[in-house]
Protein backbone atom coordinates (compact mmCIF):
# COMPACT_ATOMS: atom_id res chain seq x y z
CA UNK A 1 0.00 0.00 0.00
CA UNK A 2 1.21 3.50 -0.78
CA UNK A 3 1.89 5.85 2.09
CA UNK A 4 1.19 9.55 2.09
CA UNK A 5 2.10 12.03 4.82
CA UNK A 6 0.40 15.38 5.34
CA UNK A 7 2.62 17.88 7.10
CA UNK A 8 1.92 20.97 9.14
CA UNK A 9 3.81 22.96 11.73
CA UNK A 10 1.99 21.97 14.89
CA UNK A 11 0.52 18.60 13.92
CA UNK A 12 -3.05 19.63 14.70
CA UNK A 13 -5.45 21.49 12.48
CA UNK A 14 -4.12 22.10 9.02
CA UNK A 15 -2.51 18.70 8.46
CA UNK A 16 -5.79 17.13 9.60
CA UNK A 17 -7.76 19.05 6.99
CA UNK A 18 -5.27 18.05 4.32
CA UNK A 19 -5.44 14.40 5.47
CA UNK A 20 -9.23 14.32 5.33
CA UNK A 21 -9.27 15.86 1.87
CA UNK A 22 -6.45 13.66 0.57
CA UNK A 23 -8.42 10.59 1.68
CA UNK A 24 -11.48 11.88 -0.17
CA UNK A 25 -9.44 12.40 -3.32
CA UNK A 26 -7.81 8.95 -3.08
CA UNK A 27 -11.25 7.36 -2.81
CA UNK A 28 -12.30 9.33 -5.90
CA UNK A 29 -9.20 8.15 -7.77
CA UNK A 30 -9.64 4.58 -6.55
CA UNK A 31 -6.12 4.55 -5.06
CA UNK A 32 -5.47 2.46 -1.98
CA UNK A 33 -3.16 4.45 0.28
CA UNK A 34 -2.66 5.24 3.93
CA UNK A 35 -2.58 8.91 4.91
CA UNK A 36 -0.85 10.06 8.10
CA UNK A 37 -0.91 13.58 9.52
CA UNK A 38 2.32 14.73 11.09
CA UNK A 39 4.25 17.84 12.08
CA UNK A 40 7.66 19.30 11.38
CA UNK A 41 9.24 17.62 14.43
CA UNK A 42 8.12 14.14 13.37
CA UNK A 43 8.17 14.30 9.59
CA UNK A 44 11.52 12.56 9.18
CA UNK A 45 10.33 9.48 11.08
CA UNK A 46 6.77 9.49 9.76
CA UNK A 47 7.78 9.99 6.14
CA UNK A 48 10.66 7.49 6.14
CA UNK A 49 8.71 4.99 4.01
CA UNK A 50 6.23 7.37 2.41
CA UNK A 51 5.93 7.95 -1.35
CA UNK A 52 4.45 11.43 -1.04
CA UNK A 53 4.55 14.33 1.41
CA UNK A 54 1.71 16.80 0.98
CA UNK A 55 2.32 20.21 2.50
CA UNK A 56 2.17 23.97 2.22
CA UNK A 57 4.73 25.83 0.09
CA UNK A 58 5.72 27.52 3.34
CA UNK A 59 6.81 24.28 5.02
CA UNK A 60 8.87 22.63 2.30
CA UNK A 61 12.12 24.04 3.69
CA UNK A 62 11.44 22.38 7.07
CA UNK A 63 11.31 18.83 5.69
CA UNK A 64 15.00 18.17 5.21
CA UNK A 65 16.26 15.27 3.13
CA UNK A 66 13.66 12.80 1.96
CA UNK A 67 13.11 10.19 -0.74
CA UNK A 68 9.42 11.02 -0.91
CA UNK A 69 7.91 13.26 -3.57
CA UNK A 70 7.21 16.61 -1.93
CA UNK A 71 3.95 17.97 -3.31
CA UNK A 72 2.98 21.55 -2.51
CA UNK A 73 -0.71 22.20 -2.01
CA UNK A 74 -1.73 25.85 -2.22
CA UNK A 75 -5.34 25.47 -1.14
CA UNK A 76 -6.03 22.70 1.36
CA UNK A 77 -9.74 22.80 0.61
CA UNK A 78 -9.53 22.63 -3.19
CA UNK A 79 -10.21 18.95 -3.92
CA UNK A 80 -9.51 19.43 -7.62
CA UNK A 81 -6.03 20.80 -6.95
CA UNK A 82 -5.27 17.96 -4.51
CA UNK A 83 -6.60 15.38 -6.97
CA UNK A 84 -4.58 16.73 -9.89
CA UNK A 85 -1.33 16.82 -7.91
CA UNK A 86 -1.80 13.47 -6.16
CA UNK A 87 -2.73 11.77 -9.41
CA UNK A 88 0.44 13.15 -10.98
CA UNK A 89 2.63 12.10 -8.04
CA UNK A 90 1.20 8.59 -7.71
CA UNK A 91 0.12 7.86 -11.26
Amino acid sequence: MKRIVTLCGAGVGTSGILKVNAERVLARLGIDAMVTATDVNNVQADAADAQVILTSPELVKHIGRTFADVVEINSYVDLDEIERKLDEALG
Binding site: G9, T14, P57, L59, H62, Y76
Partner: peptide, 9 residues
Protein backbone atom coordinates in the same frame (compact mmCIF):
# COMPACT_ATOMS: atom_id res chain seq x y z
CA UNK B 1 8.35 29.64 13.57
CA UNK B 2 6.85 27.97 10.51
CA UNK B 3 5.55 30.78 8.32
CA UNK B 4 2.15 31.53 6.86
CA UNK B 5 1.19 27.90 6.17
CA UNK B 6 -1.87 28.39 8.38
CA UNK B 7 -3.37 30.33 5.46
CA UNK B 8 -4.84 27.13 4.06
CA UNK B 9 -6.99 28.62 1.32
Amino acid sequence: EFGAYIVIA
